[in-house]
């Protein structure tokens, strides 16, 4: 087991190396970058140096005067040393900006994820135990509608209904107008209140996958021999489903949940952007749009690490939870 994990981690590092290089190369190859726009602006000022001089100076000060490969290794060395550079857009160290925004995204993601679990798992089990009944059809339909709903459209609908027409919530933003005058408890409640619509969007648009997963697994378990045995013993249906079958559906469920944990830090780019919630997703979106290379590189690497971590976690959890699985 330990050898397996070490092997996987080494492989992950190799993959990460390739991924960061690809992203770095793409970012560097893009024209009309942040630096060029800035040089253009600076050269426009009265009595300024010509554009060529500005761009040479800026490139040098941002470390863009090296070639892509050399530049990549400089970036890699800095990254490995824990020096993530300064964000161009936010003009603070990347890691500081990251610190400021990531926890909000995490809280949002965690609340949404817990709600998803609470709703999706019971519904999935109901759908599976009454396969092909009306309940099953409607649950499947709801799950698929959730998957098919474009998040931006759903978020806009929510805004129209609850923010514009009913005026229960603000259209966007994390804090209300009177935030500065509130006590700390009220400030907390104000933020929570502003997160209701974004979290609702997240829950509804991502609940379908978990619901269907639970249903499929439960169906598989219900067709297993030991369930037939349990029924043959004369156990009540209640006991068969919630004691024998449910415990076995937990195996894939736990692995999925474990695998989703790193993703909670990734932020919800579209939802955060739409509701102007200053989490990691919106921050990253802003930096990507203007070509802020240090922040974008950091964010992309962060996401890649999260993906690798969740894959690894899923595989390890499989072996831990299910004694039938042996990892070489």
């Amino acid at each position: 087991m330990r050898n397996y994990i070490i092997k996987r981690i080494l492989a992950s590092i190799l993959i990460l190396f390739c991924v960061t290089f690809i992203i770095y190369a793409i970012l560097r190859c893009l024209p009309a970058s942040y630096v060029e726009t800035m040089a253009m602006q600076l050269a426009m000022a009265p009595g300024a140096k010509p554009y060529e001089e500005w761009i040479a100076q800026l490139n040098a000060s941002y470390g863009l005067d090296k070639g892509i490969i050399a530049g990549y290794f400089v970036w890699l060395g800095d990254f490995a040393a824990g020096n993530f550079g300064d964000s161009w857009k936010f003009t603070v160290p990347v890691i500081q900006k990251f610190h400021d925004v990531v926890w909000l995204s995490f809280v949002m993601g965690a609340v949404a994820f817990i709600l998803e679990l609470l709703i999706a798992v019971p519904l999935g089990i109901i759908a599976a135990t009454r396969q092909y009944s009306r309940a099953d059809y409607s649950i499947t339909a709801v799950a698929l509608i959730g998957i098919s709903l474009p998040p931006f459209f759903f978020a806009t609908l929510l805004k129209l209904v609850f923010a514009v027409k009913l005026q229960w919530f603000d259209v966007s933003g994390l804090v209300g107008r009177t935030f500065a005058q509130m006590s700390s408890w009220e400030q907390f409640m104000d933020k929570a209140y502003h997160l209701v619509l974004p979290i609702a969007t997240l829950v509804i648009t991502s609940i379908g996958a978990l619901m269907r997963h639970t249903r499929t697994n439960m169906l598989e378990v219900l067709n297993a021999d030991y369930i037939r045995t349990a029924r043959a013993k004369g156990l009540s249906e209640q006991r068969v489903i919630y004691k024998h079958a449910f415990r076995n559906t937990l195996i894939p469920l736990v692995t999925i949940i474990g695998g989703s944990l790193p993703g909670l830090f990734a932020g919800a780019q579209i939802t955060e952007t739409l509701f102007s919630i200053p989490g990691i997703g919106w921050t990253a979106y802003q930096s990507m749009i203007i070509g802020d290379i240090p922040f974008t590189m950091f964010y992309m690497t962060f996401i890649a690490v999260l993906t690798l971590a969740s894959n690894l976690l899923t595989d390890i959890l499989y072996a831990v939870v299910d004694p039938r699985v042996r990892i070489a």
Partner: peptide
């Protein structure tokens, strides 16, 4: 399969957003 792993790991939506923004610029 290693290539597949690398591709799996690339955050695709952010990447497409970056490319889209770059195409805007060009």
């Amino acid at each position: 399969m290693r290539i597949v792993d690398v591709f799996y790991c690339i955050p695709s939506l952010p990447l497409v957003i970056i490319l889209g923004a770059a195409m805007d610029g060009m």
